[in-house]
């Protein structure tokens, strides 16, 4: 059990590193838009897991509403990072694209951290927001009508 507890963060980290730096190293092709949205959700979620785990390793003081407002701001920021005007500029440049994906992990980390700082286990609320937003964006955010 303890080995599994030690291994899963490492396994998740390996997955995140492959996902972020894989295309840069191996020149993989761009996935379809809906899968790409899910990929962003995965990166946010993974970042959130690390953020939550980090807070649980140290003494915390909770209750400052600023942490709650940070959660909301970061949620909005994660959506704004997917706007075509932002994304379109970085999409064509592999290094910037990789940096933006790294940005998703950072935003996810901060979101999980901020939520846990407001109240222990509220990180689950952040993760719920990330998962739902990821699924919904994958169903059609930024996609034209099928017949267009």
């Amino acid at each position: 059990m303890k080995t599994a507890q030690r291994l899963w963060p490492l396994a998740l980290l390996v997955l995140v590193v492959i996902d972020i730096f894989g295309p840069l190293a191996f020149g993989a092709t761009e996935p379809p838009l809906s899968l790409h949205h899910l990929e962003h959700a995965f990166l946010l979620l993974a970042g959130g897991v690390f953020g939550i785990a980090y807070v649980r390793r140290r003494p915390l003081s909770y209750g400052d509403p600023l942490w709650l407002f940070a959660v909301l701001g970061l949620g909005t920021l994660s959506l704004l990072m997917m706007l075509p005007d932002v994304y379109g500029t970085v999409d064509a440049q592999p290094v910037l694209h990789t940096a933006l994906h790294l940005g998703f992990v950072v935003v996810g980390w901060l979101g999980g951290y901020a939520a846990e700082r407001y109240a222990p286990r509220l990180g689950l609320g952040w993760q719920l927001l990330v998962v739902v937003t990821g699924i919904i964006t994958a169903t059609g955010f930024g996609s034209p009508p099928p017949l267009a």
């Binding site: 949620g75 909005t76 959506l79 704004l80 706007l83 075509p84 005007d85 609320g125 719920l128 927001l129 739902v132 937003t133 919904i136 964006t137 955010f141 930024g142």
Partner: peptide, 17 residues
Amino acid sequence: GLITVAAGSVLVIALLA
């Protein structure tokens, strides 16, 4: 409520975009 707000944020951000 959080699920609904997540849907609402995607909706409004798409319309604002």
